[in-house]
Design a protein around this nucleic acid. Structure first.
Length: 511
RNA sequence: GGCCCGUUCGUCUAGGGGUUAGGACACCAGAUUUUCAUUCUGGUAACAGGGGUUCGAUUCCCCUACGGGCUACCA
């Protein structure tokens, strides 16, 4: 059992865009597979036809691709030996019905014919009677219409005449069910707390519970790594493995803590992103029905590796103090035992910090190539060697790639001058002072930061003035701003004639 | 309501029967810098509460409180 090759799966429903919590689940599966040299599978769980959202499946595939956590088997990533990987297609092949019937034959499941009205009525009746448990279970099923209460001939008559029916699991009345969770240890529940869950729906589709167990078994999944919201149904799943006779190869479970809202309570939801101004999704998404737009990390300017890094640390931590991990390092270090038990509040601020770190790790050349299309979009030059010079100056204050362009004066002369800077620094005699500085500039050769700075210092000494008295004027005249990167480097990038032109223009424009 | 899971600085977390309870983000202060930013240095800040067990508990056990999840012919 333990010598089986590790095989894990990510099994989302295509009911909308993939939430960052889902991406984290996929990531942990991916890292676990990589760590153990195993397989990572993408299975699409589309058994609920009513919730199908066009484009959602492609969104999931695109998101995983962008994040660099690609499955080596599954929908959108090439079929493996267990195709198809879409449950709707697997249902077509009759993969689920036979197992539901097997359960009926072995006495662990039964047909139920109750209408939704009858189910509703049952619930109300039990509530009115102040019953502890209002579910369809070992006790209440005795009062309902199913193959356990109806005479055999009526059951077969209903079946033959095409009466709608579901197949329910027959949960024992009072039995301890134990689930071993890698993260939480043993979880013990009495079967009286469980209900006779529907395994097979009247529309011919299996429910999650059946499809999930059948597919995990058939696909030889060894570890089920999923969100904590599944913990309550894990005992049911254990029972299904047992009744199907698959307990020997039952996968090990690991239920991940949830991602919580940055403020207040509850789990992170789609709304929070819009409300708090940060993305909840990896990629932009437009709802095909409502047209609602949700922003994504990719389009906000986040690097995929930074996004993955931050996600990895939301619920997992190595034993040391390291926080920046490459994907390879994560795969090396990751272990389910070090996943925390409690939910993690998501902090958008730290997300920015991660991006900043990754931006700094990138070479100027790489950034220039990333920046070029952005610059082009804004009507700025996309010349790589020039952009590299820009990046040298703007890199240290940038969080996102686009921030590298936050120095418009490097691309064109300022049209306006920052009014507070002008008020504070520009005096009536400043124009004359700049005219003198202009004369000194002419003889600086080569026109580079160092000689320029030397010339500037000579100029200051001659005038017996301090840096603070003159440099802001120089900056204001050339950039129109009161602050920014090293002024001498800015001048070097701009070139002598441009600098001279700008100072001349400023002298005439400023009071 | 019932069942299940959880609880270390504001946040993410390390730690673990005896520690000055460590790191990171954020925040504050100082230094460097022409300025902003960077960088560096320092600082504020946590074991939910109550009972046990123990020489000793933040660490183990129980209870309470709080938080979260589940409670569909949804996943």
């Amino acid at each position: 059992m333990s010598d089986r090759k590790v095989r894990v799966r990510f099994a989302p429903s295509p009911t909308g865009p993939l939430h960052m919590g889902g991406v984290r689940t996929a990531l942990y599966n991916y890292l676990f597979a990589k760590k153990h040299g195993g397989d990572f599978i993408l299975r699409i769980e589309d058994t609920d036809q009513t919730r199908y959202v066009p484009g959602a499946e492609q969104y999931i595939i695109d998101s995983l691709k962008w994040c660099g956590i690609e499955p080596n088997e599954g929908v959108g990533f090439g079929d493996g030996p267990h195709a198809p990987y879409r449950q709707s297609e697997r249902k077509e092949k009759g993969l689920y019905k036979q197992y539901a019937e097997q359960l009926i034959e072995s006495g662990h499941a039964y047909y139920a014919f109750d209408t939704s009205e009858e189910l509703e009525e049952m619930r109300k009746r039990l509530e009115a009677a102040k019953a502890k448990n209002t579910s369809y279970n070992a006790i209440s099923r005795q009062t309902m219409k199913n193959s356990l209460t109806l005479p055999a001939d009526e059951v077969s008559k209903r079946l033959q005449s095409g009466d709608p029916y579901v197949i329910r699991i027959k949960i024992p009345r009072n039995e301890e069910v134990r689930v071993k969770d890698i993260i939480r240890g043993w979880v013990v529940v009495n079967s009286s707390e469980l209900d006779d869950k529907v395994l097979f729906k009247s529309d011919g589709m299996p429910t999650y519970h059946l499809a999930n167990i059948v597919d995990d078994h058939l696909m030889q999944i060894t570890h089920v790594i999923r969100g904590e919201e599944w913990l309550p149904s894990a005992p049911l799943h254990v029972l299904l493995y047992r009744y199907l006779g698959w307990e020997e190869t039952m996968p090990q479970f690991a239920h991940l803590p949830l991602l919580l809202k940055p403020d207040g309570n509850g789990k992170l939801s789609k709304r929070d992103g819009d409300r708090l101004g940060f993305p909840v999704f990896p990629l932009n998404w437009v709802d095909p029905v409502t047209g609602d737009k949700s922003s994504g990390y990719r389009e906000k300017g986040y690097f995929a590796d930074a996004f993955i890094n931050l996600l990895a640390l939301l619920g997992w931590h190595s034993s040391g103090n390291q926080e920046i991990f490459s994907k390879e390092e994560l795969a090396q270090e990751f272990s389910l035992e070090r996943v925390s038990k409690s939910g993690a509040k998501f902090d958008p601020e730290k997300t920015k910090w991660f991006n900043q770190q990754y931006l700094r790790m990138r070479s100027d050349d790489e950034l220039a190539h990333l920046l070029a299309p952005l610059a082009h979009e804004r009507g700025l030059t996309s010349d790589i060697s020039f952009l590299k010079k820009v990046i040298e100056l703007t890199k240290e204050r940038a969080v996102f790639t686009a921030d590298l362009l936050d120095a418009p004066y490097l691309f064109a002369a300022p049209e306006e001058f920052d009014s507070t800077a002008v008020e504070k620094k520009w005096k009536p005699e400043s124009g004359a002072l700049m005219t003198e500085w202009l004369a000194c500039i002419q003889s600086v050769d080569p026109f580079e930061a160092a000689p320029l700075e030397a010339a500037f210092k000579d100029f200051l000494a001659a005038k017996n003035l301090g840096m603070g008295a003159v440099l802001p004027l120089f900056r204001l005249a050339v950039t129109g701003q009161g602050m920014g990167p090293s002024m001498f480097h800015i001048a070097e990038v701009l070139g002598k004639s441009e600098v001279v032109k700008r100072i001349q223009a400023a002298i005439t424009k400023l009071p």
